[in-house]
Each structure stands twice: as C-alpha cells, then as structure tokens.
Design a protein around this nucleic acid. Structure first.
Lengths: 236, 236, 236, 236
DNA sequence: TATGAATGAGATTTCATTCAT
DNA sequence: GATGAATGAAATCTCATTCAT
C-alpha cells in the first residue's frame, strides 16, 4: 500500500533493507555492513540518516505504525456499535501484521520485549491504537453491550494477546502458507470473546434451553409478542 | 519449589546467576564475565559446564520446565471435567510464571522469539504441556462440553496468548505489585472463554429476550417440559 | 585590533569560526562539520579555501601573528634602551595573548607542540618576534646593560617561558577573571629578570654588606654626596 | 632507576610501548594497534589492563610522577636554606625530564594542555611538587631570604615556565645533543632569579649607587673592613 | 563559486572462548 | 576440576575529504 512509483529514496532503501534483515536475524545479529550491502549504500551513509543502529531499528516501525493507526482512526468512527469497532481495530492489526510479515516479526519478536522501544514514538502509536481498543471495550461496558462486571483490561489482553500469540507462532514456524489464515480466525475468535462478555440484556430475560418439541409452541407464543433481537446482527 | 537443602552445586550457582542476569538485561547484553562474578566462579568454569553462552541459556529453563510440567501432568488426571483440567493447567502456568518472575521473563522475553530454542528439550517440555492443554480442549469438544465447531488451536492460542500477554506487560512495566495479580484474573478469564465456547447443551434452544410480562406465561410453559440444551447456534 | 568594517568574507568567517572551535575543543576534537555550521557555510566550502583541516589550523594564526609582530617591529626602534625595548616586546606578546584568548589558547595549547607548525609562515612570524627579543638581549649584553656572561638564549627562554606558563595556566583554569591580570605581572616580572642580569654599572660600585657598626660612618659619607638612586631597587 | 631485572610484566611492556609511541606521534595519532604490536601483545590485552586508550595515557605518568616526587620529598627536608631547596626541586624536575625524554615529551607536549589530565592522580603528584616549590618560595619570603614584596606565584611561574619552555624547545628541535644541556643551565638560571628577588640583607645595609667620583673614597673605606660576600657561593 | 550527499578508511572497544597451569 | 590470562574476530561509529550539480 501507498507504493511510490518513484525510485525509492536512499533512506527508504536503507529502512527496507534493515527491516528485512532485522526481521530475519534479529537486531543483534544483523550487522550494519550487511544492511548497507543489501541497501546498496555505504555504511557511512546509513549513519548519515540514522545516528545509531538502534535509531535505525526504531525508525522502521515509526512511520508504519503511525500510518496504519491513523488509517484505522479514520475508519473506526464510521462504524456503529462497539463490537463492530473492536472487530475493525483487530482487523487492522491482523491485516497489518499479515500483509507485512517482516514488520510483524520485527514488532512481535524484537521490539515488544525491548524496554527502550517503549519510549519511542512508534510505540506511542501502537499504544494509541491499543488505547482505542480499550476505549471501545469500556464503551461497550458502559452502554450495556458487555457485562457490567467485565474487566476491560483483561479483555483487551485477550484480544491482543491471542492475536500476538497466533502471529508469533506463525513466525516461529516459518510463516507457513497454511490453509487457515489468521484473518480467517478473527471472526470465530472475537465471537468467542463477545459471547463470553456480552450482556444477555434487552429487558429482564433469561436464557432458555428448550427441547426441539417446545420450539413450535414457543414460536407461536413469540410471534404474538415482538421478539427480542439477538444483538449479533449488528456485527456484519 | 524443588528446593535443595544441600549447598548449591557450582553448576546450579551458575545457572541461578545466569537466570537472574539474563532476565534482567537480556541474553545479548548479559556477559559471561558478569555471570561468572555473580556466580562466584571464573569464566572458564562456566565453559567447563556449558559449552556455549547459548547452551547456558537453554540449560536454564530445562529443569524447571520439566519439573513443573511433569508436576502438572501428575495432577491433571485426577481432575474431573475438561474445564477443571484446563483451569488447572492454566493455573500451573500462571503460578510458575508468577512465583518465578526471572524464569517467566527469560521464557517470554528472551526465549519465545528464539528459533533455536524451539529445538531444545526445555521447549519440548513446554510443548508437552501446551499439548496437554490442546488435548483437554479437544476432549471438551468431543465430549460435548464445548461446541462441536470450536477451533481447538484457536482456543489454545487464546488461553496461552492472553496469559503470555499479561505477563509480558507485567514485566515490561517493571513487575508492578499492582492490586490485581494475574492469578486473580484466571477465573474471570477462563470463564469468558468457556462461556464463549461452551455447548449450550440440553438441545435445540434459542436465547430469548422477552418482556417482563411474558416471563410468567413462559415460565409455566417451561415447567411442563424438562428444559433442553445448547444455545450455541448464535455463534456462527 | 585591525577591525574590518566591511562584512567579513567567507574565508574570514571560516577562520573566525575555526579559531573559536579549535580553541575551545582542540584541533583533534573539532570537526569540520561543526566549524562549517558555526561559520554558516557548507563543509565543501571550507575545502574550497583550505585544502586540509590542518591547513585551516595553520592559516588562522598567520595573519594575526604577522600583523602583531610587524606592529611591534614598527614600535621597537623608537624605544630607547634595551630594557625598554624588551619590555615593549613582552607587552606586545602579553596584550596579544590577553586580548585574544582564543588565539593564545590556539597557539599555546594546540600549535606550540605541533612539529609541522614550526615550518609554517605563522610560526616564522612568531620566530621573528622571538628573534627580535633575542637581539635586544644580545644588544643589552654588548652595550653593557646586562652582564657580559649572561646567556641570551636562557634569558629569552625565561622571558617567553614565564609568560607562556602564565597564560597556559590561565587557560587551563578556565580563564578566570582574577584580580591580578597577567599584564600587571609584567613589570614585577621583568624587573626580577633585569635585576638578575643587570651589570651593576656606574663603575666601581658594589653591593655592600656592612656590619651594623659601619652603617653610621657610611651614612655620613653618603649624606655629603647626592646618592643617585635608581628607582628600581624595590620593584617599582 | 628502579630497574627490574625480572622480565618486564605485560603491563609494563604496554606502558613502555605506549610512552614511546605517544611521545613520538601524539596521543591522537598513536593507535592501539601500533602500541599492541610494539608491546608484543594483542590489542585486547591492552584493554584488559587499561579500560580505555585515555586511561592508558594517564596511567603512564602516574607511577613516574609519584615516584619522582616522593623521592624529592625525601631529599628536600635535608637541605638547609630555601634557595638550596628550590634548586633541588628544580634539579629533580630537570633530571626527570632529561633522563626520560619520552616522559617529558608526553607531559609537556601532550598532557599539559589536556584538561582531563588535570583531574588525574598523576597531575596531583605534579601539583604536589609544584606546591612544594611554592612553599619554599613563600618560606623564603617569610624568612627574609627573598624580598617581602616578591610575588611567590610569579616566581614559581618563572621557575617552572622557563624549564618547561627549555624542554619544549629541546623536544621541538628533535632533542639535539647540544653542547649545553639544560641541567647546565640550572645554576645560571636560578641565580638570575634569586638575584632578582633576594633581599639584600645581612644586617642593615643598602645598595648604593654612587657617582664615579665617590668610588675612590668608598673603595678606601671598604678596604679597611671585610667586604660583604655575595651569598651566591651557598649554591654549589 | 557553493554545496548536499556520499563514502573510504580506520580506530576503538567488546566478548565469547581458549589453554597452560 | 578450576582458573587467570590472553586474544581472535568483529562491529559500531567517526570524519576528513570528494564530486556532481
């Protein structure tokens, strides 16, 4: 996305090369020499643009995080209902991670456990997105979509942790092209979560478990009244 | 756990020191010199016991992983019901991670993203435990505790990923002594998961949202029948 | 001194900047980049004017040394008496060093110990001045002002070395604004030197050490004559 | 002095090599590689003993300064009279500088203008010695050897500055084996200084400047008494 | 003439690892 | 078995200097 048709600038070429090599060998095992060769510039040129090897590392996710998370910020407001919003945010994450595996490898395998990365603008962008997710969850609790006693932080950890875990394993297994992509897992996944935290509301009601033979009678009964709508149809 | 009352052997002292230092500074930033000082032995002695710095790294979780996961394997069979078993396995993880923060930092922040670690006996132990979890989930699907169409791998990723995420953040924030311990989150957490995947057994039913005035009539209807199972059809 | 009212040329701006920075950080620790920024030109421009970083270094004292030491050469001939001439030359040095601290720091701390600087026009100017000093001393020896057996080279080293030492220490202590300026020390200083090398002329006279009982007789003798007092005997 | 007959330790070999090379090429132009070759050890070995190239630089004068200045401290108290003491201290300086030209080149050309060196134990030793010199001068002023209004700091600067200047020039001219060694200049030199600052005491006396015609009468007077002796003969 | 951009050529420094004792 | 001492092998980073425009 956002491909430039112009020949890439030196700076971009360096960051592209660095992303590839950092993702492949890790920050420590990557060498500036190797990156400079891959980028077709001299080592000194890298230091013209990035003061430090670590600066180069942190520069990579900065743009991409901001771009992506601003893109998501533009879309989210148009989605109605917290479940839809949450799903959208998760989808942004997953598509970013999936469409740019080197980036997700870098973030999930190298950067997440780097304390200095946490003080970085790139991480701030990630945090912002993560915070948006938390806000949606809280909103869901406030507006009655989710249970009043749901722990919003826990739920966010479930959402993020699961996706991160899936991607980490995908990377550690050599990014198999497998039958099921992680995107395909999104709906089953969040449906489980939502199911687990949804307020079974819409007026004083009970969840009823009926045998098949009761369905008929019940159907008739319901038709006389206005039946409760399952909240699910909002999502999709 | 597994306290030795005998004075620690040189080897153990080295591994203890290495665990502390690897956890604190990371594998790459830790030096053999520092570990040797912390352990009170010479650098050369470390190489007597461990061929390589990385060998030392991988040796650390081996014993502890095996111990813990064998301990869990002994307990699980005595627990009835897959939900209980799953809860027990998760509790083993959490308690291990919580009671031995250096160990969890090492595993979650240093080793999880190390490809060579995956070919290690220590990782095999972790995998075994993770496999046990998967088996429980599959069993739950088979025995009707969980929905037939539940994706057992996804569920395991939810269970593991969430806990890992919680611990990673705990570590990255400097292991705050916060009000809520992760152990306390276990039950709310798995309840959400179970809630999302439980077969709403007792047959063909729907979740009904009724107005208050319908409750009475319905109540009477139900009392004539014996209530059926499973509400799951909403999910997918 | 020698102020130009015209806007400074690029070349001058570069030399000014270089002087400031070389004086502050030393030749080796100063960078062309920094100098170019301070001068408001590009690095390449510096190389337009000066072939080499060292060329730039050596170019700085050239003009100022020549100017100053030619100025002194114009004044000296008008001063009568070698002591006055020597004093004048020393005063030129001290005032140059004092009024242009960056220059003196450069010369005394960076250049004096640079062998290549000795083959430089700037150093030739300094040598010329130093040679003028030597000539004065020799003249003083020849004309009987100073002792016949005085070592002119030693005396010059005393004159120059003392002043250099005073300035070096002044610089190394951060150029304190102290009560006593080095200029103020000039007269006490050269008076000591002169005192030590002056031919106690006015013919058959000796410094007399008399016993107390001789004082009286002597006093009477002196009172009959008008004793010529050289004012010098008590440091002004 | 203090030659070890045992084969030099690695550390000593490194410092010897470093002294030679630092003195020859200057600190910045000397490379650790070259020093390591000269010393016959690996570069890494140098860093075993000295944490930094600069640490190595500063380590060199440390021992030598302390040794020398402690040696001088042992001798000085046995010398009677401030002039003799001052001469002894100066002689220590000169002999140290002369017998170890690499050392004096290092100190005078590299270190004297190094601000960080001033915070070094080695410099503290030099300062101590310099302070002893100052104390002697002050003592001379107090005890009436020198004029009451003599500026002790100025005198010290004369003593130190002259000697430093002589050595700096000697080094800059390639250490010529010249007819006159600097040691030989010591007595003429300090005699000039002492002459310039000596209190012409030895009982109530005055320096008399008489007109030529008085000389005769005075001459006769003097011949009757025993003429005052110049105090100079005390020095050697 | 002026410069932005690029780099060649090193220099310091770090450590895991070895080996004689 | 234990270690003190030594080092090979790199890796990061710095800058004076160049050159096309």
């Amino acid at each position: 996305m956002t491909e430039k048709s112009r020949p890439k600038s030196r700076k971009d070429r360096i960051m592209d090369a660095a992303l590839r090599i950092f993702a492949e060998k890790g920050f420590q095992n990557a060498t500036i020499t190797e990156i400079s060769k891959e980028a077709g510039v001299s080592e000194a040129t890298i230091y013209e643009y990035f003061g430090t090897k670590e600066d180069l590392l942190f520069a990579i996710p900065e743009k991409i995080s901001n771009d992506t998370f601003e893109a998501s910020a533009k879309v989210i407001p148009y989605i109605k209902g917290v479940e839809g919003k949450i799903r959208a945010i998760m989808l942004f994450f997953i598509e970013l991670y999936q469409s740019n595996p080197d980036y997700s490898a870098l973030v999930l395998l190298q950067l997440m456990s780097n304390k200095r990365f946490r003080q970085t603008p790139a991480h701030a962008a990630i945090r912002r997105s993560s915070h948006a997710l938390l806000d949606c969850i809280k909103e869901g609790i406030t507006d009655g979509t989710f249970k009043k006693d749901a722990n919003s932080y826990l739920i966010r950890s479930m959402l993020m942790g699961t996706v991160e875990h899936l991607f980490i394993h995908w990377h550690m297994q050599g990014r198999p092209k497998g039958k099921t992509s992680i995107t395909d897992l999104l709906d089953p996944f969040i449906e489980i979560v939502f199911d687990g935290i949804r307020e079974k509301k819409e007026s004083p009601c009970t969840t009823l478990y009926l045998k098949l033979e009761d369905a008929e009678a019940l159907g008739k009964l319901i038709q006389k009244k206005e039946g409760g709508t399952s909240s699910k149809d909002k999502n999709k």
